[in-house]
Amino acid sequence: MEDPLHPFELHTIVPLSLFGLDVSINKAVIMMFVVVGLVILLLTKARSSGSLIPTKLQSVAELLVEFIRGMIHDTMGPEGMRFFPLIATLFLFILFCNLLGLMPGAYTVTSQLVVTGVFALGVYTLSLLVGLKIHGMKFLTILVPSGTPGWLLPLMVPIEIISQLARPVSLSVRLFANMTAGHVILGVLFGLAISGGLLIGWLPFSFTVALYGLEVGIAFIQAYIFTILTCVYMGDAFHLH
């Protein structure tokens, strides 16, 4: 049976080097290009008709926009709408990466810790910068929970530092682990179905089909969680306690 982690290996297709940096094109890079192109194409096409009575594609796009706007309003309030372009881009990119990765033969970009890690670090650094810009040095009071007695401070500040640092870690690991684990399970079950033959193989195969449906749901939920947590962290930077 094939190694279940084999599909996650990346091989250089077009070797490229920029100022000594390795920027070679591999399957993941191609998938990212495809995702970006597809999102732009679909959304411009949805927008092009611009009629009052929406076409099918237009209503899907409107639903998406309403969904993202609801997320931002719930967590950041109306002033968070400044970040709508960032949040919407993140959500659409991750959602399409997750969903397109489910196609047989495609590569799931979000199953690489590098990709999710850079997203999580970038988003978290941005939320810190926003907080520092709005509140100045007062922003450091996020490290002190409100209503802490003075003698508890030496204990509470390290705990708060740890839970702040854990934010980008949990954000990136959650998305990466969910996508990787899902694909490994699908791969293993399908391998069982193939090696089982017709006599017993239908059993793991039916599990594969059922899990595939679950994976589609997970692709959506993980994209949602990543973006809603981005909103929550941004919201924490806006409103101190």
Binding site: S163, R167, V169, S170, V173, R174
Partner: peptide, 11 residues
Amino acid sequence: AVRIGTNLLAT
């Protein structure tokens, strides 16, 4: 629900 579990691990 999904948030809480990973948060424990990450901290």
